[in-house]
Design a protein around this nucleic acid. Structure first.
Length: 510
RNA sequence: GCUCCGUUCGUCUAGGGGUUAGGACGCCAGGUUUUCAUCCUGGUAGCAGGGGUUCGAAUCCCCUACGGAGUGCCA
C-alpha cells in the first residue's frame, strides 16, 4: 500500500471559514493517523475571484490550530508548484489526450449562445437544461462543425473551451468512505468545461490532474462535491488512471445554527459569533470579521470542538488533544448528516481547557492586557490573580476586566449590594478591622490571618458572616461577588486593603 | 423542476435486530461555597410518518414527508 497522501485544497477567495478548517483538520487527522502526509494546494484557477491576503490567512490559520501541511506553496515538496495558477502549463497535455481519444471536444459557443440555449430548453420544459449528449449536437463545437472550420477557428485565435464528452448511457459508481456506494447515470452529468477560454483549467480537470500528479491517495472534502464526484471518476477513467484513483470521503456539511442551509460567512455577524478562525479585514470594504483566536479561544479547544462536528470517537469521551485525535480518528466514525453549529458548546470546551492551563501560562494574557493599561505587575502576582479567576471566566481576555480590582481601587460600588449589605453595624466592624490590620506586621498579613482577625471581630460584634463579609468585599472590589475574599486581600496587600476600606467608608457614608 | 445525499432529546452525538435508547452542551432543581463562578447530585427532553420483513425493528426493506447539496468559462 502506498503511503497515504491527502490534500486540503482551498480557493484563495477570502478567509477560510470554520467549515474549511474542519475539512483541513479531518484531512490532517486522517493523514497522521495513517502515518501519511498532509499537503496543501491553492486552487486559484479563477483569477477573477482572487482576494489578496487570503492565502496568507489560510497559512496563518492552519498554523494557529497546529495543523501545518507537510507540503505547501510556502513549504514545497517534490510535487510543486502548489498553486494551480503556477501549474497552468501542465493541464493542456491532459486535455489534449482526452480530445485525441475522443473523450473531449472543442466548443466555440459564446456565453450569450449558451444562455439562449438554456432559455430555449427551459421554454421547451426540459427538466434540466444542460450541454449534454443531446444538445451538444445543436451547438458550435468540434463535433458539429466541419473539421477544417474547427481548424480555422483554432488557428485564428477564436476563443474556445474544451468540454468533456460524457457518454450517454453509462452507470458511474463510486465507493465513498462516508456514504458507501453512490451511483449516478451518466446522462444526468453534462459536458463540463475542462479548459476555460482563458487557458486555465476548471476545478474538475485541475483537481484530477493535480491529485494524480501529487500522488494523492484519499480525497477528503465537503459534501458539496459529491454531485460532481462521478464526473471526476469519469476523468480518472479516461485519463487512464483508474488503478491509482484516490478514494473519496465526502464530509457532512456545517449548517447554520438557526434555520437552515449551509453555514456561510455572513452568519457570523448575524448570529454574533465568529465563523472564521482568525480575524479578517476585507481588503475591499475594510469590514472586520471577528475570529476565534482574537475572541480568546484556545486553539486546542477550537480543534477539539471542531473535531466533534461530524465525528465522534464512539464512546463518551469528549476531551481530546490534537495528538489524541490523531490516535483515534478514523473516517469510519464520520457521520453522514449535516451538523448545526453550537456556539455554547464551543465556549464550554474553551472553559474546560482554560481551567486546566497552568497559572503562569494564563498570567501571560493578563500581563499583556496590564501592559496596555500601563500597569506594572510581577509575573508572580499575575499568576496568583489568574489562579483566582480562571474558573470564573471562559476567555483569557476576561482576566483584566474581571480582575481589575486586584490592581485598582474600585471606581464604583455595586448599587444593589450597597443597598442590601452596607449597614452601619457592618461598617463599624470594617473600621475596627482596618485598625486591626494596620497594626499588624506586614509579614503577618495573609489570607489566614486576615480571616481569623475578621472572624474574631464579627463574633465580638455578635454578627454573622453574611452580615459583614459583603460589605468588606464591596469596599475592596466594588462588587457583590467574586473570588475568595481572604485570598484577594493577601494578593492586594495590607496597605491597599486598609486604604480601600477608608475610601469606601468615606464615599458610601457621604 | 431534475440528480444526488441525509433524518436518534432544542443542539452535538452513542447505539446497526432483544437496551429502563447512553453521554455531552443548554435549561431547571438541590448540594458545596461568605457571594458569584467552579464542582457534585438529580431532573427535563429524542428514534420524522406510514407500510412491510421478523417471535421481536431506533436498528433491515419500501413509500411518503421534511431537510440539505448540486444543477456556472465558481471552487
Amino acid at each position: 500500500m502506498d503511503k497515504v497522501r491527502v490534500r486540503f485544497a482551498p480557493s484563495p477567495t477570502g478567509p477560510l471559514h470554520i467549515g474549511g478548517v474542519r475539512t483541513a483538520l479531518f484531512n490532517y487527522l486522517f493523514a497522521k493517523h495513517n502515518n501519511g502526509e498532509f499537503l496543501l494546494r491553492i486552487e486559484d484557477t479563477d483569477q477573477t475571484r482572487f482576494v489578496p491576503g487570503a492565502e496568507e490567512y489560510i497559512q496563518k490559520s492552519l498554523e494557529w490550530v497546529g495543523i501545518s501541511p507537510d507540503e505547501s506553496p510556502w513549504n514545497p515538496g517534490e510535487c510543486g508548484p502548489y498553486r494551480q495558477s503556477e501549474r497552468k502549463g501542465m493541464y493542456m497535455e491532459y486535455a489534449q489526450k482526452l480530445i485525441d481519444e475522443g473523450n473531449a471536444y472543442y466548443a466555440f459557443d459564446t456565453p450569450e449562445e449558451l444562455d439562449a440555449m438554456r432559455e430555449r430548453l427551459k421554454k421547451a420544459k426540459v427538466a434540466t437544461p444542460q450541454y449534454n449528449g443531446i444538445t451538444r449536437m445543436q451547438m458550435k463545437n468540434s463535433l458539429t462543425l466541419p473539421e477544417d472550420d474547427v481548424k480555422r477557428r483554432l488557428e485564428s485565435g477564436e476563443p474556445y473551451v474544451i468540454r468533456l464528452k460524457v457518454p450517454r448511457k453509462e452507470e458511474v459508481r463510486l465507493n465513498d468512505m462516508v456514504r458507501g456506494w453512490v451511483m449516478v447515470h451518466s446522462h444526468t452529468i453534462d459536458d463540463k468545461i475542462l479548459m476555460k477560454s482563458d487557458g486555465m483549467p476548471t476545478y474538475h480537470l485541475a483537481n484530477v490532474v493535480d491529485d494524480h500528479l501529487m500522488g494523492i491517495t484519499h480525497v477528503i472534502r465537503g459534501e458539496e462535491w459529491l454531485p460532481s464526484a462521478p464526473l471526476h471518476v469519469l476523468l480518472y477513467q479516461y485519463l487512464g488512471w483508474e488503478d491509482t484513483m484516490p478514494r473519496f470521503a465526502h464530509l457532512p456539511l456545517l449548517l447554520k445554527p438557526d434555520g437552515h442551509g449551509k453555514l456561510s460567512k455572513r452568519d457570523g455577524d448575524r448570529l454574533g459569533f465568529p465563523v472564521f478562525p482568525m480575524q479578517w479585514a476585507d481588503p475591499s470594504t475594510g469590514d472586520i470579521s471577528q475570529g476565534y483566536k482574537e475572541d480568546g479561544f484556545l486553539p486546542e479547544a477550537f480543534i477539539n470542538f471542531l473535531a466533534f462536528l461530524g465525528w465522534s470517537p464512539g464512546n463518551n469521551d469528549e476531551m481530546f488533544t490534537l495528538e489524541k485525535l490523531v490516535e483515534v480518528f478514523t473516517i469510519e466514525r464520520v457521520g453522514k448528516a449535516g451538523t448545526k453549529f453550537d456556539y455554547d458548546k464551543a465556549k464550554w470546551f474553551n472553559q474546560q481547557y482554560l481551567k486546566e492551563k497552568p497559572d503562569t501560562e494564563l498570567a501571560q494574557y493578563l500581563l499583556a492586557d496590564l501592559e496596555k493599561e500601563g500597569i506594572e505587575c510581577s509575573p508572580e502576582k499575575a499568576a496568583l490573580v489568574a489562579n483566582q479567576l480562571k474558573e470564573r471566566v471562559v476567555f483569557p481576555n476576561e482576566f483584566w476586566p474581571e480582575g481589575k480590582f486586584f490592581f485598582q481601587q474600585p471606581d464604583s460600588y455595586d448599587e444593589k449590594t450597597v443597598k442590601k449589605k452596607w449597614k452601619p453595624e457592618a461598617v463599624e466592624v470594617l473600621a475596627k478591622y482596618k485598625d486591626a490590620i494596620v497594626a499588624m506586621d506586614n509579614a503577618d498579613f495573609n489570607a489566614a490571618s486576615a480571616k481569623s482577625t475578621f472572624m474574631g471581630l464579627i463574633e465580638d460584634a455578635g454578627l454573622k458572616l453574611g452580615q459583614v463579609m459583603p460589605a468588606l468585599r464591596l469596599a475592596i472590589s466594588g462588587k457583590g461577588m467574586g473570588p475568595d475574599l481572604m485570598i484577594m486581600q493577601e494578593i492586594i496587600g495590607k496597605e491597599e486593603v486598609a486604604a480601600r476600606i477608608d475610601v469606601a467608608i468615606e464615599k458610601l457614608e457621604a
